[in-house]
Deep mutational scan, measured.
Amino acid sequence: GPREVTMKKGDILTLLNSTNKDWWKVEVNDRQGFVPAAYVKKLDSGTGKELVLALYDYQ
Rank of each mutant, 00 (worst) to 15 (best):
I12D: 00
D57M: 04
V28N: 13
T47A: 12
L43V: 10
N20Y: 07
E27R: 09
T6G: 07
K21E: 08
D22R: 14
A37S: 13
S18I: 06
L15H: 00
W24T: 02
K41L: 13
L53P: 00
V28D: 05
D44S: 11
G33D: 05
Y39T: 05
D22V: 14
E27S: 09
L43H: 03
G48D: 13
R31Y: 10
N29G: 14
E4R: 15
A38F: 08
G46Q: 12
P36R: 05
I12W: 04
T14E: 06
N29S: 07
R31H: 11
E27C: 14
Q32C: 12
Q59K: 12
K42D: 03
S45M: 12
K21H: 09
L51Y: 13
G10R: 02
S18C: 10
L51T: 08
K9F: 05
I12L: 06
Y58V: 02
I12P: 00
I12T: 06
N29I: 05
T19C: 11
V40Y: 02
L53R: 07
K9D: 02
A54N: 01
Q59T: 15
A38S: 15
F34A: 02
L55I: 08
D44Q: 12
L15I: 04
L55D: 01
E4I: 15
L51N: 05
V40A: 02
S18Q: 09
R3M: 14
K25E: 14
D30A: 09
N29D: 12
E50I: 14
P36A: 04
D22T: 14
L43S: 03
K25H: 10
W24P: 00
G33V: 15
G1R: 13
N20T: 05
E50Y: 10
P2M: 14
N20K: 05
A38T: 10
V52P: 00
S18E: 10
V52N: 00
M7N: 00
V35D: 02
A38K: 14
T19S: 14
D22M: 13
P36E: 02
E50S: 14
A38M: 10
L16R: 03
G10I: 02
L16E: 00
L53K: 06
S45E: 09
P2Q: 13
E50D: 12
L16F: 03
K49R: 12
G46C: 11
I12H: 04
D57A: 06
D30M: 09
L15C: 04
G10A: 03
W23N: 01
D11L: 04
D30C: 11
K9A: 12
G10Y: 04
R31L: 12
W23D: 00
W24S: 01
K21T: 09
F34V: 05
L15G: 00
N17T: 06
L13I: 06
V35Q: 01
D57E: 05
V26S: 00
K9P: 05
Y58A: 02
D11M: 13
E4W: 15
L13G: 07
K25F: 15
D30H: 10
R31W: 14
T19Y: 09
L53G: 02
F34W: 15
K49H: 10
R31S: 11
A37W: 02
K25M: 15
P2I: 13
Y56K: 13
N29R: 09
E27Y: 08
N29C: 08
K41R: 11
V52T: 01
M7F: 15
G46A: 12
G1W: 14
K8T: 07
I12A: 02
W23Q: 02
W23C: 09
G48H: 08
K25G: 05
K49C: 08
T6C: 14
Y58Q: 02
G33R: 05
A38E: 09
G48Q: 09
V52L: 08
R3L: 13
D44W: 12
K41I: 13
K25A: 08
G33S: 06
K49T: 10
G1E: 11
V26Y: 00
D22W: 15
V26D: 00
L43Q: 04
M7S: 01
L43F: 10
V26F: 02
Y58S: 01
R31F: 10
Y56G: 04
Y58I: 03
Y39P: 00
S45N: 12
K42T: 06
E4V: 15
V28R: 09
E4F: 15
V5L: 15
D44G: 14
L51M: 11
K49L: 11
M7K: 00
D11F: 04
V5Q: 03
L13T: 01
V52A: 09
P2G: 13
K9L: 04
V52W: 05
T19E: 14
E50R: 13
S18R: 08
D57C: 05
I12G: 00
L15K: 00
L43D: 02
T6W: 14
S18W: 09
Q32R: 10
G33K: 04
S45P: 08
E4T: 15
D22A: 10
L51D: 03
S45R: 09
V26C: 03
F34N: 03
I12Y: 05
E50L: 13
A54K: 00
A38Q: 10
D30F: 09
V5C: 07
G10H: 03
L43I: 14
L51H: 06
L51R: 08
T14G: 05
M7V: 06
T6N: 12
R31M: 15
K49D: 09
E50F: 12
F34G: 01
P2Y: 14
Q32G: 05
A37H: 03
W23S: 02
Q32F: 09
R3C: 15
E4N: 14
N29K: 07
P2F: 14
Y58K: 01
R3Q: 14
G10E: 02
K41S: 09
Y56S: 07
V28P: 01
Q59W: 11
S18T: 09
V5Y: 09
S18P: 04
K49M: 10
L16W: 03
D11T: 06
L53W: 05
N17S: 13
Y56T: 09
K21L: 08
L55R: 04
D22P: 02
N17L: 08
V40Q: 01
K41A: 10
D11P: 01
A38N: 11
L13R: 01
V40L: 15
W23L: 04
N29L: 07
E27P: 00
N17D: 15
G48R: 06
L13E: 00
Q32M: 10
L55T: 04
L51Q: 10
Y56I: 09
K49N: 09
Y56R: 15
V5F: 15
T6Y: 14
P2R: 14
T47F: 12
G46Y: 11
Y39S: 08
W24M: 03
D57I: 04
A37G: 03
V26R: 01
M7C: 04
P36Q: 03
K9N: 03
K25P: 01
L51W: 09
K25N: 05
L55K: 04
L13F: 06
P36V: 05
E27K: 08
K9Q: 07
Y56F: 13
L53A: 05
R31V: 15
R3H: 14
T19M: 09
W24R: 01
N20C: 11
D57R: 04
S45A: 10
T14K: 10
Q59H: 13
L43K: 02
E4K: 14
L13C: 07
S45C: 14
G10S: 02
A38V: 09
K41G: 05
T19K: 10
V26M: 01
A54R: 01
L55W: 02
Y39Q: 03
E50W: 11
T19F: 09
D11N: 05
G33E: 07
V26Q: 00
L16G: 01
K41N: 05
R31E: 08
V28I: 15
E50T: 14
A54Y: 02
K25R: 10
T19I: 08
K8F: 08
D11S: 05
Y39C: 11
R3P: 11
E27D: 05
A54F: 03
N29H: 10
K9S: 06
A37M: 04
V28G: 07
T14N: 07
Y39N: 04
Q32D: 06
D22I: 14
E4C: 15
Y39L: 11
Y58C: 01
Q32I: 15
T19H: 10
G1N: 12
T6P: 05
Y56A: 10
N17H: 06
L16D: 00
I12K: 05
W23T: 02
E4Q: 14
K25Y: 15
K8R: 13
Y39H: 05
T47G: 14
D22C: 15
K42N: 05
N20H: 11
L53Y: 09
